[in-house]
């Protein structure tokens, strides 16, 4: 049995299409090479002129036409159920944000991995906070774009316990290739227990929640390691060399500097980094939130 309810149909469509294609590829290639061999100038010095043959032409219009319609049908048949979601499907909201996936369960509980119960329909409501992403679970053969401003969805029934890759397939910027997580398929009882244990609301400091919500932590770690850019740990109060309008100067990272970095990131660039990588958060992070971020940064020295 396939990892999801769609695997069988999709794989059948692949088999039909690849099967027919392979037959024709092998057939045509063989005939072509045979002609090249048999009618080479050495073996066949004078060409015979063959008249056009309408019957032949009609045959090789009709047969491919029938075959491609067959392929269309298999593709359609396996796809159409993917758009019809059972009423009792468990709704989970997927939040795509540069470059992390978050899964929100009923009651607002959030998880970075997608945990689903075995043999239960699950509906994923796709929500993007910034640009287009696409949620792809290869083992389940499903994918749908996560488009800002649209309410796209997908659904499936997981049929095999295990852990599967979840990837982003629409290019979404710097760390697109790291926008991946797992989906874990567990028994219903395990699922219930897991959901219960999932913390209701995060008890993390407010500033950190804001950083995570805006995916700042996708590039700036909070433990001193380097992801894309300078870590938040020990950032506040540090001296740094920056390029401003092409000339280098030394600054101390204080409230003002953090504000200007967030609202006008390309004004000062820390030496060794490139312009244009971090976008402005003007309009996304309010002054109030900024204060909370700064308060938090002061605590991780």
């Amino acid at each position: 049995m396939g990892a999801s309810n769609f695997v069988e149909g999709v794989d059948l469509a692949f088999k039909v299409i690849f099967g027919i294609s392979l037959f024709f590829l092998a057939g045509i290639t063989t005939v072509m090479l045979w002609f090249v061999f048999r009618y080479s100038r050495k073996r066949h010095p004078v060409a015979e002129q063959i008249k056009d043959n309408n019957l032949l032409e009609i045959t090789w219009i009709t047969i491919p036409l029938i075959l491609v319609l067959l392929m269309f049908y298999y593709g359609y048949a396996a796809f159409s159920p993917q758009r019809i979601v059972p009423k009792d499907a468990i709704p989970i909201t997927v939040i795509g944000k540069m470059w992390v996936w978050t899964f929100e369960y009923e009651g607002g509980k959030q998880s970075p991995v997608l945990v689903v119960p075995l043999n239960k329909p699950v509906r994923l409501n796709l929500h993007s906070e910034d640009v287009i992403h696409s949620l792809f679970i290869p083992a389940f053969r499903i994918k749908e774009d996560v488009v800002p401003g649209k309410n796209n969805f997908m659904w499936f029934i997981a049929q095999q316990p295990g852990e599967y890759d979840v990837l982003c397939t629409v290019y979404c910027g710097l760390r697109h290739s790291y926008m991946e997580t797992k989906t874990r398929v567990v028994s219903e009882a395990e699922y219930e227990a897991w959901l219960k244990a999932l913390p209701e609301k995060s008890n993390e400091p407010e500033g950190l929640v804001i950083l995570k919500k805006n995916a700042c932590t996708g590039c700036h770690s909070i433990d001193g390691s380097k992801i894309v850019s300078v870590s938040f740990k020990g950032m506040f109060g540090k001296s740094e060399k920056v390029m401003t309008n092409g000339s280098e100067r030394s600054i101390t990272i204080d409230e003002e500097y953090i504000k200007s970095s967030l609202y006008d990131p390309d004004k000062d660039i820390v030496s060794g980094y490139q312009k244009g990588i971090m976008k402005t958060y003007k309009g996304l992070v309010s002054e109030q939130e900024m204060t909370k971020i700064i308060d938090y940064l002061k605590t991780i020295k």
Partner: peptide, 13 residues
């Protein structure tokens, strides 16, 4: 298989 719906969904992008 990029033209057919079900298979496209899997291999698209």
């Amino acid at each position: 298989s990029l033209g057919a719906l079900a298979t496209n969904i899997h291999v698209h992008d």
